[in-house]
Write a protein that binds this DNA or RNA. Structure first.
Lengths: 225, 225
DNA sequence: TCGAATGCTATTGTATACAAATGTCCGAGG
DNA sequence: CCTCGGACATTTGTATACAATAGCATTCGA
């Protein structure tokens, strides 16, 4: 962790994910440097990283803006993610160890707890979910696959609408994870791939439905205006 | 094209691809800056880009080295590339236009010419091949897919052994391209995907065979020592 | 009134200086 | 002979100054 540039990266990233910096906003290095309390050099580095994460775009004249994800972009990203995570699940099933399986079970147990709370703990759910998928990716054992997926997993729109998911959707997610665990326990790669692909695509449609609902209420574009 | 940093990127990249900078060599910013005739700042930027291309790795203490691609890494990359390019071919077939089809045919015609020369023109082949795949990716119309694939297409080991391919392998490649064109002409996504996946995997095995041959002659590792 | 040229401002690109961190090597002590 | 420290050399991180370039608005001419 090289202090300043990582701090800048985290700071800008969270400003984008939270919507504090709305889609289309210009990202001037000097202004960001001041807001992050560092100089332009680490900010520049952070912007390049965010650009490769596709959270930031640059015009042909090198000016940076918060990326504006259209509905099609999100669909595109989910489609690719479904394919790649499916692949990861297949590889993971074929290489699964008992120790890793325990960690995956633990993550899903934490998810169950978060969902079971009197008031569903969405942040807890997201954390458990992240761990669950991270262990699978680790067991899949492909640096490249991990690198490719890392640019697809965190999208601002999704992040901001995750809280719209109902308890039912969270519970269904937990159930699909249980099925994945069964596939892993049997080391059945094809099964794991099928479930994972469906799991991601279902998550996409849950997002799309929630987003459509918001759009009808005129609640989505406000941040960009 | 921001002059200095792009020059540094191209310069370092070609030094790696050509083997002038062997796998495992340390990349000190100052030394590279001097070799490229620029200051450290653009070199740093170039190194970050090369790192995201997986041509350069960094230790936990932030020192950069030319990435060392093991056989497994290469297999891994080809496997992913086969999947992603297959997907791209499917999408391209579904969205193909007559104009794009003409460009694809033109690229394959240039490949045929390069292969047909008295002495096979490998550089011409590679250029035509690049165009061929680039148009498909363009028609597929997924920025994300293009971004993911860009980190997989150019690998130093492959680059250096491409010249080992025999004329027969080049001709077979051309033939597979013709079949792809047929699938595109019929807008048959499933067909295009199947052929493309096979095309990439065949290329992988051609590479693996050539590489194995070199290894037996003890000709591969010399650059790393 | 419209369009093009021009000067001003904002923003990014590059170089360089210095600080912080890492690696290396050699000597003292066990 | 090995290991543990510590000084020195290398390398990377950050800040800042300055240069180059793009954007913008205003004005001048037709």
């Amino acid at each position: 962790m090289s202090r300043a540039s990582d701090r800048a990266y985290e700071a800008i990233r969270s400003m984008i994910l939270s919507g504090e910096l709305p889609a289309g906003a210009q990202l001037a290095e000097e202004a960001l440097a001041e807001r992050c309390g560092v100089s332009r050099t680490p900010v520049r580095e952070a912007l390049r990283r965010l650009e490769s994460d596709l959270l930031v775009t640059r015009t042909d004249t090198q000016r940076s803006f918060v990326a504006d994800w259209s509905i099609d972009d999100v669909a595109d990203a989910f489609e690719l993610r479904a394919m790649l995570e499916g692949k990861a699940a297949r590889r993971a099933a074929e290489r699964m160890t008992d120790a890793a399986l325990d960690r995956i079970r633990g993550a899903n147990r934490r998810i169950a707890e978060a969902v079971g709370r009197p008031v569903a703990d969405v942040v807890g759910f997201l954390e458990g979910n992240r761990d669950f998928h991270a262990v699978i990716l680790e067991v899949a054992g492909s640096r490249r696959l991990a690198a490719l997926l890392s640019t697809l997993i965190e999208q601002p729109v999704v992040w901001r609408t995750a809280h719209q998911y109902g308890r039912e959707a969270l519970r269904r997610s937990h159930g699909e994870h249980e099925e994945l665990i069964a596939a892993f326990a049997r080391r059945d790669g094809a099964w794991a791939e099928a479930i994972m692909t469906g799991h991601i695509l279902r998550a996409y449609h849950a997002y799309a439905d929630a987003h459509r609902g918001l759009a009808e209420q005129g609640l989505v574009r406000e941040a960009a205006e």
